[in-house]
């Protein structure tokens, strides 16, 4: 079945299609169709009731399949890794936020530090001297990561305790 929300005409066929797909409860129908569908049903109560009857019967059957709610032990098990996961996620987010700026800052700092050396250095000779090592953004990120290894994002431990 292929329908186009923009092109379709809301009539009995469309009401039937909506009921077949989404069930008899208009609150489950697509928002784009709902107001017009409700108006149609109000204008055609008898025909509408017939159109929706079959879908309503199936809806009732589907409701009979109930599942038990998760037990408290599952909730506790799921929450077990939460403090560590949340802390690591915050740390990663913090590093991602700093990453671009730190790389730029490190590159600028490297340029400032290298300037006097470059000015005092005679013209390069063709000898195969080892290349100068400059602070790259990647290096800066590594240093930053190392420096922040012990940093822990403040988490609401106190609030959590208070709520438990």
């Amino acid at each position: 079945m292929k329908v186009s929300a923009s092109a379709r005409r809301l009539d009995a066929d469309r009401i039937r299609a909506l009921a077949e797909a989404f069930g008899a409860e208009p609150s489950r129908w697509p928002e784009a169709d709902r107001a017009a569908a409700l108006a149609w049903l109000e204008a055609h109560p008898g025909e509408g009731a017939v159109l929706l009857a079959e879908a309503r019967a199936l809806d009732g059957l589907l409701e009979a399949w109930r599942l038990p709610q998760p037990a408290e032990p599952l909730r506790q098990r799921v929450l077990g890794p939460a403090p560590v996961v949340v802390r690591l996620a915050r740390r990663r987010s913090f590093l991602m936020t700093l990453g671009g700026g730190a790389g730029l800052a490190a590159a600028c700092l490297a340029g400032v530090m290298a300037a006097p050396i470059l000015l005092a250095t005679p013209a390069p000779t063709p000898s195969p001297a080892p290349p100068a090592v400059a602070a790259t953004p990647v290096g800066a990120d590594e240093l930053l990561t190392e420096a922040l290894a012990g940093w822990e994002a403040p988490v609401g431990e106190g609030e959590a305790d208070a709520a438990s």
Partner: peptide, 28 residues
Amino acid sequence: RRVGRGDLVAVRALTARKLPRLTSLAAR
């Protein structure tokens, strides 16, 4: 937002809100 700030009370609340829905979805 609160979970993103590391608020463990919010973590518990979000878990309480979503766990039944997610287990039902996956079970079905």
